[in-house]
Amino acid sequence: MDVDLFDFDLPPERIALRPAVPRDAARLLVLEGAGPKEGQGVMRDLHVADLPGVLRPGDCLVFNDTRVIPAQLEGRRGEARVGATLHKRIDLRRWQAFVRNAKRVRPGDRIDFGAGVIALAEARDEEGGYTLFFEGEEPVELLLDRAGTMPLPPYIAGKRAVDARDREDYQTMFAQKDGAVAAPTAALHFTPDLIARLEAAGVAVEKVTLHVGAGTFLPVKASDTKDHRMHAEWGSIDAAVADRLNAVRESGGRVIAVGTTSLRVLESAADAESARVRGWTGETRIFITPGYAFRVVDGLMTNFHLPRSTLFMLVSAMMGLERMQAAYAHAIAQGYRFYSYGDASLLLPGG
Rank of each mutant, 00 (worst) to 15 (best):
T310D: 06
I111D: 08
E79M: 10
T225Y: 08
A123V: 10
L120K: 12
M318W: 01
E206I: 06
A49G: 03
R106N: 07
A161T: 14
D59A: 03
D178E: 05
H305W: 02
H330P: 00
T284N: 03
Q325W: 06
L210F: 02
A272L: 13
A180Q: 07
I118W: 11
T216E: 00
G116L: 04
H330N: 14
T209C: 05
T66A: 01
R77Q: 15
M313W: 01
L311N: 03
T172C: 07
V241H: 04
G351P: 00
R295D: 01
T131R: 10
S345Y: 11
R276M: 05
Y341C: 12
G350N: 14
R165D: 15
A49W: 05
Q96V: 00
S262K: 06
R100M: 13
A331F: 14
N303Y: 01
V255K: 07
D50F: 03
L194H: 03
L198S: 06
V48P: 02
R44W: 11
D298G: 09
A293F: 01
G58L: 01
A327H: 14
D59Q: 02
A49Y: 06
G299F: 12
V21A: 11
T131K: 05
R264A: 02
A327E: 13
R276P: 04
V212A: 03
L346H: 08
V105G: 09
V68R: 11
G148L: 07
E79V: 02
A183T: 13
A80E: 15
K226D: 11
V21D: 08
R160G: 12
T302Q: 01
A121P: 01
T85W: 13
F294N: 00
M318N: 08
W95V: 03
A26S: 09
P107A: 08
I15Q: 12
E13Y: 04
A102Q: 15
R89I: 01
S223D: 15
K226T: 10
H228L: 09
L300E: 11
D109K: 10
A327P: 10
H189A: 06
V48N: 02
M43V: 14
Y130W: 14
V82R: 14
A102M: 11
A333E: 15
I90E: 09
A186T: 10
P184A: 13
R94A: 02
D163S: 13
Y155V: 10
V105R: 08
W95P: 04
D343W: 00
D243A: 15
